[in-house]
Each structure stands twice: as structure tokens, then as C-alpha cells.
Design a protein around this nucleic acid. Structure first.
Length: 271
DNA sequence: CGTGTGCCCTGACAGC
DNA sequence: TGCTGTCAGGGCACAC
């Protein structure tokens, strides 16, 4: 169930075992996920040393000493299992080092694995079109004002657009809009400067809080059974249909559909 | 161009 | 117990 905080947690967890290690064996249990696996993936990875791991938006990157980076996306249901005790039907890619085994498990197969020249990562089409990292210095109220100018689409759908901000998903858009007290149906071009000034720190805070919670579950990540422990955040709106707003305004959380996906919000405090 | 819709896939759960 | 329908944290192709 990966959004940015889960991908960040995953990358940090993987790095503890994989960074600096030599990949001894790679096994693909099927030819593809969303896309076919790169044809030379196994050949390039086998024998390579991992020089580092990083994250861009919801993508995790495994950098190799062969000027190539393996880029994984966890889709809706992907996760890495470290040292699993038993195989899973949906373990699609297995990586082995001298000390560990890593299984990329993704039942719905909405994820992907790509391989790109490390020097050309910024030019990789999926990255080239992306907006700023929400936790980086380039996400500012000014950036949002310019990117949303004239947009008649709802602010909710615009924030899910990776070209405007890279890495926000359904949960954290709902949560950030609640924190910033912005109605999800509001036309993006009409969101005020005052609201945008609240929205930027709201986005940062909710992501940072979740990463901290995810970070606390890194202990679970390293459990002998290899199960990935997801953070357990208490959401303010996500999935809370009919429950009372945590702001104390007496509002009942409402669920609507936008772009075919659910949105939750408080009709009292979000305007 | 911007915007809206449907689909990719499996599993969990509610209701009958 | 099994069936059916709905929904799920994402992204893309396609139609207008």
C-alpha cells in the first residue's frame, strides 16, 4: 500500500541490507509486471555491486556500479520481502546477495521495474515530466500558484497529478487538504494564496509524520520473517466516512468520488 | 491542449 | 459454504 512515505520507508529498509552488497543472483518468476522487465535486467544486475539507494516521487532506485540504476514502482500492492521464510505466489523478482534474499511481491502487478543509465535519470521520461518533490525546496506556494493557474480541475485531482507535485497519492492528498482546510472540489485555479500558503506545510507535515511512523516500523521490516510492517497512522479523514471531524467542529466526514477514486473531507471546515 | 473515462490485476470483505 | 458485487494506497491509453 505504497505512497511516498511507504516508498521512503522501503528504500531505507532495503538500504540497510543492500547498500554496498554484491548481487549474486537474480531470478524473474514471470516476464513482466505493468511493463515487461528490461531484457538485460538479469545480466546487468548479476555480479553488480549496489552503490546506493534513493527515491524519486513514488519510485525506488537501486544504483549499481555499472552506471545503471534499477527503478522499481510498487503500484497499489507491491512490497519488498526481506529474507522471507516461504515463497509467495506473487514474488515476481528475487535478488540474492551473500547474506540476504529480497523478493519483490506485488499481487495486483500494477508495479514496474525499469533500468536506466544513472547519468541519464533526469531524462527518463517518467522523471522528466515530474513536478517538484513535496519534501524538497521547490515545492512552494508560488510554484503551486503558477502550476494551478487557470485550472478548472478540482484541487484534489491536480494534487494527484505527478506533473504538478511528484509523489502525492490518494491518502495524503485527502489528509493534506483537510489540514489546510481546503475543499477537495474547489477549482484548482481558484485556490487562494492564503490557502496555498497553508497547503505547502500541510503536505510536508503529513508526509514527514508518516515517514516518522513508517520509520518506527522499520523494526518490523527487519523481523526474521521478513514481513514489511506498514505504519499505522491515525488518519483524520481517509476512510472515516460518517465519523466526527477531529477539528472539533462537529462535522461528519463525507466520502465523494473524484476521477473514479474516493475522496474524504469535512464539509464544515474545508472550504 | 485540457479534461474525463475506463482499464490493467488480485484479494478482501459485505451481503445474500 | 459459496456466490456476487464493490472497493482498494497508481498510472496509463484513449476519446472528446
Amino acid at each position: 500500500m505504497p505512497e511516498l512515505p511507504e516508498v521512503e520507508t522501503t528504500v531505507r529498509g532495503l538500504a540497510r541490507y543492500l547498500d554496498g552488497a554484491r548481487i549474486e543472483r537474480v531470478v524473474l518468476n514471470r516476464p513482466d509486471l505493468r511493463r515487461p522487465f528490461p531484457p538485460d535486467l538479469v545480466q546487468v544486475m548479476t555480479g553488480a555491486r549496489v552503490t546506493g539507494l534513493s527515491r524519486r516521487a513514488k519510485y525506488g532506485l537501486i544504483h549499481l556500479d555499472r552506471a545503471q540504476s534499477v527503478i522499481f514502482h510498487l503500484g497499489m500492492s507491491g512490497r519488498w520481502r526481506i529474507d522471507p521464510e516461504a515463497p509467495d505466489t506473487h514474488d515476481h523478482m528475487i535478488i540474492e546477495t551473500a547474506s540476504n534474499r529480497f523478493a519483490l511481491c506485488d499481487p495486483r502487478r500494477f508495479g514496474s521495474v525499469d533500468m536506466v543509465d544513472t547519468g541519464a535519470l533526469d531524462a527518463w521520461p517518467q522523471f522528466a515530466a515530474m513536478g517538484p518533490e513535496p519534501l524538497g525546496p521547490d515545492l512552494t506556494p508560488q510554484h503551486l500558484k503558477a502550476a494551478l493557474k487557470g485550472k478548472t480541475q478540482s484541487i484534489k485531482l491536480c494534487l494527484l497529478d505527478q506533473r504538478i507535485v511528484a509523489g502525492l497519492g490518494n491518502i495524503y492528498v485527502c489528509e493534506a487538504l483537510w489540514r489546510a482546510r481546503i475543499h477537495p472540489m474547489k477549482k484548482a485555479g481558484k485556490v487562494t494564496r492564503t490557502q496555498l500558503a497553508r497547503l505547502v506545510p500541510a503536505i510536508r507535515d503529513v508526509l514527514e509524520t508518516s515517514i516518522r511512523d513508517g520509520g518506527s516500523s522499520l523494526r518490523d521490516y527487519a523481523r526474521p520473517d521478513g514481513e514489511l510492517g506498514y505504519f499505522a497512522t491515525r488518519f483524520d479523514v481517509y476512510g472515516r466516512t460518517g465519523e466526527v471531524c477531529h477539528r472539533g467542529d462537529g462535522g461528519a466526514i463525507r466520502r465523494i468520488t473524484q476521477g473514479g477514486r474516493s475522496t474524504w473531507y469535512c464539509p464544515v471546515c474545508q472550504r
